[in-house]
Nucleic acid binder design. Sequence first.
RNA 1: GCGCCUGUAGCUCAGUCGGAUAGAGCGUUGGUCUCCGAAGCCAAAGGUCACGGGUUCAACUCCCGUCGGGCGCACCA
Length: 564
Amino acid sequence: MKKDFFAQLVHGAIDKAIEEKQLGELQENNFNPICEIPKNTQFGDYAVNVASLARFAKMAPPIIAQNIARYINPKGFSINTAAGFINFKLEKELLNSIVEEILDKKEFFASSNIGHGEKVNLEYVSANPTGPFHIGHGRWAALGSTLANIMNFCGYDVYQEFYINDAGNQINKLARSLELRVKELKGEKVIWEDDLYPGEYLIDCAKRYIESGEKENYADFAKADMLRLQKELLEKFRTHFDCFFSELSLYKNNEVEKCVAELDKKGKLYQKDGAIWFKSSDYTDSQDRVLKKSDGTNTYLTADIAYHKNKLERGFTRLINIWGADHHGYIPRMKAAIDALGYDSSCLEVLLGQLVNIIQNGEQMRMGKRKKMVTLDELVDEVGVDATRFWMLMRSIDTTIDFDIDLAKSQSDKNPVFYVQYAHARACSILRKATEKRIDTENKSELPALFSTEELSEIKKDTNIESLFDENQSHDSKEAAKALILKLEESKAIINAAAKLRAPYLLCKYSQELATAFHHFYNYSRVLSDDKELSKKRLAIVYCFTVILGKTLDLIGVSAPQKM
RNA sequence: GCGCCUGUAGCUCAGUCGGAUAGAGCGUUGGUCUCCGAAGCCAAAGGUCACGGGUUCAACUCCCGUCGGGCGCACCA
């Protein structure tokens, strides 16, 4: 990408400057130049800050910048220095090379191999099969699926996994709840005990149970039914798992007991108060944890340790889990377990997502399965998959989202996602118009289309847009075209950063900036005109825009409409 | 009490690695369609970056402390 290109250039120039003793007391080039895009574009398109060399060179930053810049041969760009910055401005040759590369690589323009094929297990959502998803699950689903898309695009080998918590007490409660619903449907009067699942969704489940002939036990039927509903919603929400991993299967395959035995063998367990404890405080945990309760049953942690062991045994070198912030205290004990089993716990990366508050009628509602709540299903039905995903993704993972249902419903046309999609539809419309017949408004006669479909596909393959930056173009038009091309190029840096930092929200932000750059370009440059050569070059840029924006939206799982 | 997250424009949020004049959307005000989609574009107003120290040539950014908000501190899952 261009940032790296200029950073390398500066690095090389520093080598030469040191050789020629132009950098004072600086002897060795340990400097890692970082290229950034200046906030103020008057300085340049790209800038490298060399001021931090001042303390080693014992020279003033502006002189350092000048002395380094002298060793850079400006080909396709111009250089200026100011206040410790070396600034670069791209000229038409380099701008054209960007467009050529996009036309050549298309949606893979920003693809990379920074992941080097690393085998990553990404676990997210992992809900109990006891009821419908709440809005918070939507955030984890959107985050996980998008992160998987981004990382796969950047050369990681991501395997997406959903851990089904189908082995705890909650399953007994679910079974009992279904049983009561079935009895109710048959006209029996029942008394609901505390702590059950009184949600109405179990009424439908009970109907299906009766229809099925009541052959299965309540627990198995309810679990399967809930899981089926969850899977359907996930598909609709464009979240695709490679594997649904059952907690129960760990017990059936004796993996839990084997795991406990292994920890015991390594001397990491002890008995106290009739329970079996894991010495997690030998590691970074604040206290020891119970694995086997005094009644002989295992805790949730026990199976989860076996699960993580299972993942590592399957050859994953990196385990990424997306958890809600309310689980943060759980991280040290999990890491302790991984270390105790002889693995390196630094392979476990837990992304803690802050929670989602639901705001309705101006009041905050608690998330929770047992209280009245808004389900993800309802939300998606009301505001759509695109808007829901975008809203869930657009904020950094560290920020609590206040999801205002009323706002999302009533002002959906003010959603940023519509702004972005509109830009895409607008660009597609121009590409469509290019091959449609035109109407001469003055004498109402029909004019032939500007381009044939063959010509348009030629434009999409090969063009030279350098003339867009000739003297006869207006300043605003040139600047807008340049800004758009640079913004397109930025997709490389943004997508790589999103993969490395596990930060999907960067793509939402970028998609908005890219849309703005396009609208700006559109405003200053009439694309289709009688000047056929000019139209061709501008169409090429419009096409590049649809490719890059389309791919960006594809990665975040939001549709890129041709028409709206 | 301890731990994690957080405090930036009226509201919701960006701010990468410590660098140039602090950024966007929404909202407000004023412009802008005979012409490719005005769901757009342009402009204006709006800031003691919670507060106090420290490190540095340079701090919204790093360190320490104080205050406010969220979440968690189980033989629940």
